[in-house]
Design a protein around this nucleic acid. Structure first.
Lengths: 105, 105
DNA sequence: GCGATAAGCAACTCCGGAGTTGCGTTTTGA
DNA sequence: TCAAAACGCAACTCCGGAGTTGCTTATCGC
């Protein structure tokens, strides 16, 4: 995953309401829009938009069941984000180690 | 780190230009604003703003040296972000495991 | 069939993020 | 000491994100 791909993913995670929705999905399991809107201080429409942002980032998935639209977690992309952070973290460690060596010499 | 604290951190990572600046700092080491602006297709002022966003998120640190302002990586907060992702990732795994168990029974 | 529930659609406001431009200030170094 | 380099400040545009409101559509349960 390049940095161009990673930016939208982190941007999707960069909102408190969306993180709250992810947390609720994690603790309470899959839920409809109305149900998810109960746990967050915004309107149902706002929740819909946030869920679609998360869906576009690949972090959640929706399934229609009758008149409901049930949203659930999609763990693949979160693993991508973790791997990306691991990679740049390792790069940072290398960079800092090189600097430390330069300072010592 | 709560989700309210994590959101601004991920938001800081959620921009391709900022990720490019972090990558350049990682590979080329610390650098001045003008130097960093060379590697990215925006103006020097835009780079300054991006660096201040990263600084406010705790991801970089600046040091003045004469007429230059040298920016360097600050690895602590990135570790925070990794830990946060690890935590919610574990929560997701738990949630999905519980669901799988429910489906089996 | 009908009221109630769940969600979609569309238009709107508001605000801040991203970027640029112009100009002023400080520091270098020859 | 003086031109150039490096940066700060301030104002401006542009656009999209976040949120709301009003209304319509679809579906459930009875």
């Amino acid at each position: 995953m390049s940095s161009a791909d990673a930016a939208p993913l982190f941007a999707a995670l960069g909102d408190a309401t969306r993180l709250a929705l992810l947390a609720r999905l994690s603790t309470h399991g899959p839920g409809s829009i109305a149900r998810l809107a109960e746990g967050v201080p915004v309107s149902r429409q706002a929740v819909t938009k946030h869920l679609e942002v998360l869906s576009h980032a690949g972090l959640v998935r929706d399934r229609r069941r009758g008149r409901e639209r049930v949203w659930a977690l999609e763990p693949h992309r979160l693993t991508d984000a973790k791997r990306y952070l691991d990679r740049i973290s390792a790069q940072w460690d290398d960079a800092l180690a090189r600097l430390a060596r330069l300072v010592e010499e």
